[in-house]
Design a protein around this nucleic acid. Structure first.
Lengths: 227, 227, 227, 227
DNA sequence: AATGAATGAGAATTCATTCAT
DNA sequence: AATGAATGAATTCTCATTCAT
């Protein structure tokens, strides 16, 4: 009994170590990194990795599931915190900051978003997205986020910025200012009708935005310089 | 002589065909796609590909250089067009829309951004960035983009959104609305001091944004609902 | 033109050499033998083997197809020869003698017989069986083989004896005498009703033969010693 | 003491269970089946299998020894039964029928026959062969088997037919008729000199049988149809 | 210049066997 | 004595790159 327990504890520890290392290895080198590298850096034999995760895909998936679950748990914690605005923006900021060190997870977030093959990871990803959607709604009800922003585009921005943040030359400073711009866009009341860029967030089903044509054609009718 | 000339013309045509195919192949399948696939779809022998591009990396680089150059040329054209604001936003929109179909180029833009190994492609990438910087300055001078936004973060947003747009489940509609938010953030006057998210684009060198701590601590002093 | 032809000739030669070697390697070691062994003994790189045969199964199948085709061709030649009896028995003898040196091919004949996964090889095997069936019918019409023997059991005997002949300790002498017994059984007029073993070839659908029960029960009614 | 005894009883039981399972596993999947599969289906840990049988080869050997011993015991029982003919043919039939369900054992019988590496199994195999030889002699003395048949070829036929019977598409009906032909060959008085196949069981040391040459040459002088 | 064949260095995965408890 | 985890040596297959024609 005791024996069994101890062995399991050891194995569990190994499993966790492998996951930790894999998160780092796949983070740095993308999922193209070799399983052997994971084994080496985890200090175990290659077969041990395969004992815990029968295929490489299973290993990658386990890494993602763990990561998505952690993020979702964090989001749930923030849901309960007072201050819906800070909760939303804080989570957004945290996730992007975290992505900076877990490089290819952004890629995974990215890849999985449309991939339906990876069962569990997909589920965990969707759960995270759902919770994030709740954070968004709360923040909108609190007036901290404009009402016309919807989950698909906001989540796309979350993925986009976290992915961008994983680039090594994007330091913390740049990242913060990048987010400040996005956050202004999210918070900002669509002031007056005249915007310099001609896009409206509330536009739907309009096919191609008119901007491109206008721009190519040359001078837009909108005033170029604001008073 | 004639033969030589003809062969050269043939070779040049081959080179272009290979580049076209490679752009598509690496676009669809990522740079993990095989060189043999490129050769097959270009209708040439594998050795011909390696005759034109001594390594796979060289082929990928040539694809990127051509792509960056095209984008830069487009940016230069817009620089001369009247209407600095539409020029900037239009180019941004175009590039993101284009990325949606050239999937892995966004990845490359991404990867290269910090990579200094890839000589020519890096140079082309920097040239594009520089031209984009000029577009930005013009737009700022025209009042179409807030003054406190600087190239690093704006370029980061360009990369981020173009990468996000390459995901299959991001349709044109979502892409447009995502950009609308970002563009509002770029255009928007930093209204009053009280922002719901607590980030200021003009903050520099401040290490960690204070948001996180505040948020975790709970209720911020700032009013949650705006009047 | 010339160039292309020459290359193809070389490649064809390599292909044949690989097949020859594979026939030997899989013959000696069973299909469990490694592809690398085939490559080494063929004097080519492992990748060359896989270039010609995309999977190991394809290689094994190609070996079998070639072998079955050769045997069928031989059978067809004999079909045209005068003397249906000698043709039948001669083919039987030849095939068994040949199997003695192509060890595991007997195994393949064996395995394939019920296997429907291996497309081409299965087809080639069936073609051989069909031609052998014609040889059998001719021999029966010529009175050289008893009329009540049918293809399934005769073919089973062919497979069985060729497989047995592949064992190293079965020398030619033993093989010949083993065949002599089988051939006597095939040729032999079902003499009188009283056989010492109690089985009749013409029995069909009789479920279990009665022999076993009788034997276990003890003394059969049939006379034990023949006059 | 008590503990030791109990443990030993348990261990013995485990050993038997492992052997039972192994007989089935190696029977179904060939000896390529994995040891882990045996352990799993036996409900023990993999290490327990290796405690009882130090190598996989030892396990396979133990399975074979047990099987050969059982067959030999059965043969010995039949030796004492009245009716030497039925004893011989019955044993032959039983063994072949049994092989139909213990697939790869036929293969093992086969493989071992010439293999001198597998000590105990080889010995058990030889013991079986010896006992079978006695059955044969008795049957010959009883006139149930022709006098000129000797053990090597008869045993070869036993192995050959049992191996053939293990093929899934050889049903009981075909198996019985295949045996009927062989048994006719074994029982049959070498009638008159003129056989359609030209082989004589009593031929020894004659190098190649003349049949092949004759057949290839074409029309034999012997009449093709018997009067 | 162009081609297709050849090559060896990985990569994922499996398996018999050993180790620690 | 029993267990399950760990291990490294195969094995199949892929791919960038080189060679010969």
């Amino acid at each position: 009994m005791m024996t069994g327990r101890v062995q399991r504890v050891d194995a569990r520890a190994n499993r966790e170590r492998i996951l930790d290392v894999a998160e780092d290895v796949f983070g740095t080198g993308g999922k193209a990194a070799s399983t052997e590298e994971v084994a080496r850096r985890a200090g175990v034999g290659i077969a041990t990795v395969f004992r815990h995760f029968p295929t490489k895909a299973a290993l990658v998936e386990a890494v993602l599931v763990r990561r998505f679950d952690r993020l979702r748990t964090r989001a749930e914690t923030l849901l309960a915190a007072p201050g819906a605005g800070p909760a939303f923006y804080g989570f957004f900021t945290e996730l992007v900051a975290d992505a900076a060190t877990k490089i290819a997870i952004g890629e995974a977030l990215h890849d999985l978003a449309g991939d339906d093959g990876a069962g569990e990871a997909m589920a965990a990803s969707l759960a995270l997205r759902r919770t994030f959607g709740t954070l968004l709604q709360q923040a909108q009800r609190a007036g901290a986020v404009r009402d016309d922003a919807e989950l698909p585009e906001v989540y796309a921005l979350l993925v986009a910025t976290s992915r961008a943040a994983s680039q090594p030359h994007i330091d913390e400073d740049v990242r913060t200012r990048m987010l400040a711009i996005v956050f202004d866009g999210l918070a900002g009341k669509p002031q007056d009708g005249a915007r310099p860029h001609g896009l409206r967030s509330s536009d739907r089903q309009t096919g191609r935005s008119g901007v491109q044509g206008v721009m190519i054609a040359g001078a837009p009718s909108a005033p170029d310089r604001r008073p």
